[in-house]
């Protein structure tokens, strides 16, 4: 399925479960997502990760409803946390940000500067992570401990981001990336008509579950 259509489908489902209270639908979403993930050969490690990571918020929200709200609602909310995470993981494990951005650019008229700008920045994530670590270390050597509370940490990180964005933009321009000019594509992405049909069927099935149960 086309990444952009997949994303839209997932977002529609996520919005719907936010505004409705349906335990069965939550379970169906979790089970179907799990099946899709297993069919896509998800590693045991990532599977454990998505089971363990939402456990604290899920229990927290359940306990809060148990003590200060209603129990039934608590179960729905806890399963909802899992449904969100499973929906999100189904998307991120079966589509890459590259494919998503390329199809958005070619089929949904996203301006090229946004597509390639975001992609460029995304690829800098690791570098930025290292920079932040370095800034913290450098400060620690002078016995200054920077936390998420210190403006200096943000200031220095933004300064380094400024530098990186200048370099990257210059690099892209010198490789003849011209904003707002038409581009040719190495890989043409066309949306299959069947993908629209799939999307409509999935959303239709969700509505049936919502109405029936």
């Amino acid at each position: 399925m086309d990444p952009a259509l997949k994303l839209i489908t997932i977002l529609i489902i996520a919005i719907e479960i936010s505004f409705t209270q349906n335990l069965i639908l939550n379970f169906i979403i979790i089970i179907v997502s799990l099946l899709i993930l297993i069919l896509n050969k998800i590693s045991l490690k990532s599977l454990l990760y998505i089971f363990l990571v939402p456990i604290i918020p899920a229990i927290g929200i359940y306990a809060a409803q148990l003590i200060n709200g209603s129990t039934n609602y608590g179960i729905i909310l806890a399963t909802r946390v899992y449904a969100y995470v499973f929906l999100g993981t189904t998307f991120t494990k079966t589509a890459s940000i590259k494919d998503l951005i390329f199809t958005l650019e070619q089929n949904f008229k996203l301006p090229a500067k946004f597509a390639y700008g975001v992609l460029g920045a995304f690829n800098l994530t690791e570098t930025i992570r290292k920079e932040i670590k370095q800034i913290k270390l450098a400060a620690a050597m002078r016995n200054v401990h920077l936390t998420f509370f210190s403006p200096t940490l943000y200031f220095k990180s933004i300064m380094s981001a400024l530098n990186w964005s200048n370099l990257l933009a210059e690099g892209m321009t010198s490789h003849l990336f011209v904003e707002d000019s038409p581009r040719t594509h190495f890989k043409n992405i066309n949306i299959n008509k069947l993908d629209y049909v799939k999307m409509i069927i999935i959303i239709f099935l969700v509505q049936i579950v919502l109405i029936k149960f």
Partner: peptide, 24 residues
């Protein structure tokens, strides 16, 4: 305002906030 450099910078700023938040 939204030229290539600023789009990259904007994304980097959100990434920075995300990383600092995740670290904590």
């Amino acid at each position: 305002t939204w030229n290539l450099r600023n789009i990259i910078l904007l994304t980097l700023i959100s990434i920075i906030c995300g990383i600092i938040f995740f670290a904590t």
